[in-house]
């Protein structure tokens, strides 16, 4: 099967004055049509940078190298104008913070119908019909009235539905969801996840799902990438990640999740902290926090090694 999105050797460097800091490197993954790929990792590990790189939304001082193959085109080699046609049309983005990702001064209907008019060249009345349809699809009550309301009149969960409706407006083939439920409370989270899942299934949309919540990953994803300090450290399908994690970091993440059946004095944690981007060690980036670490780990960086056909880990002991 041809993959929808294929990222090869993606590397992002931020230039500040004369210092160049590598934020992410050696990012290789692909997403098949209809598949949901989860990207997990703690704050600052490069999850969001990866998604922004795919959308080409990084600041101009960021240098992006490598290859991002979307269908038959390399996103990084498209002109601004060509890519503008892709953004919002074939790939769209759902943001983390529903309270600020809608413009407070435009009506809901206008915000959703705008990309429809722009990309699908619909007339205003057709676009309105489509918008109402979308509002219905994301489970907004009274769509005809909400169409003329402003964002401040809606709650967080409702706004996130609006944001999802905007992202879906042109039937994109890939939705990048950057922590779409982090800002919402748990019951609303469940509703939004269900909604995303339903939409993906009905339209055959692929989702790149970025989160730090392993519970959400188990719920949503087919395959998972675990990122640590700007690198992919493990990649496997969702069952394998939870049942047989190979990388010590993934194991650490999983064991620091509270379990209902165990009694705790203190929750398990991973000792130490993530190295700073400007002082990355020469060896394995996780070595200083790893219980298995040997001399080789501190001296030479491990590659992403295939453990078996679909399972890769960046560790000598995997």
């Amino acid at each position: 099967m041809n993959s929808l999105l294929k990222v090869e050797d993606l590397k992002v460097q931020i230039k500040k004055n004369k210092d160049v800091t590598t934020i992410i490197k050696d990012i290789n993954f692909s997403i098949n049509p209809g598949e949901t790929l989860g990207v997990v990792g703690e704050s600052g590990c490069g999850k969001s940078i990866t998604s922004l790189a795919i959308m080409r939304l990084l600041d101009k001082n960021a240098q992006v190298t490598g290859k991002i193959q979307f269908e038959s085109h390399d996103i990084l080699r498209m002109t601004q104008k060509e890519f503008r046609h892709v953004r919002g049309n074939h790939i769209s983005l759902i943001f983390q913070e529903p309270m600020t990702s809608l413009n407070p001064l435009h009506k809901i209907g206008k915000q959703i119908s705008e990309p429809v008019i722009r990309h699908l060249k619909m007339s205003k009345s057709d676009a309105k019909e489509r918008t109402i349809e979308l509002l219905n699809a994301v489970g907004i009550p009274r769509p005809n009235e909400i169409y003329n309301e402003y964002p401040y009149q809606l709650s967080g969960g409702m706004r996130q539905r609006i944001v999802i409706a905007m992202a879906m407006a042109c039937n994109p083939r890939l939705i990048i969801a950057d922590e779409p439920t982090t800002a919402l409370d748990v019951t609303i989270q469940a509703q939004i996840l269900k909604l995303l899942k339903k939409i993906a299934k009905e339209n055959g949309t692929s989702i790149l799902f970025i989160t730090h919540d392993l519970g959400v990953v188990a719920e949503m994803c087919d395959r998972v990438i675990v990122m640590y300090a700007g690198q992919i450290v493990e990649e496997a399908d969702v069952r394998t990640i939870f049942k047989q994690p190979k990388h010590p970091y993934t194991k650490g993440l999983l064991s620091s999740m509270p379990n209902m059946e165990k009694e705790y004095e203190v929750l398990d944690t991973i000792e130490g902290s993530v190295p700073m981007f400007n002082e990355m060690p020469t060896g394995c980036r996780y070595a200083s926090r790893c219980k298995l670490a040997q001399d080789i780990c501190f001296n030479r960086e491990p590659d992403l090694i295939k453990a078996n056909s679909d399972h890769k880990a960046r560790c000598y002991f995997a």
């Binding site: 939304l57 990702s101 413009n103 944001v163």
Partner: peptide
């Protein structure tokens, strides 16, 4: 702010973002 980034991610041009997203705010 995110809604400006959101407008960009939906394929809006710079002029549109300047005059229709930023200016009213």
């Amino acid at each position: 702010l995110e809604y400006i980034e959101s407008a960009k991610s939906l394929g809006a041009k710079d002029t549109r973002i300047l005059f229709l997203e930023i200016l009213p705010n």
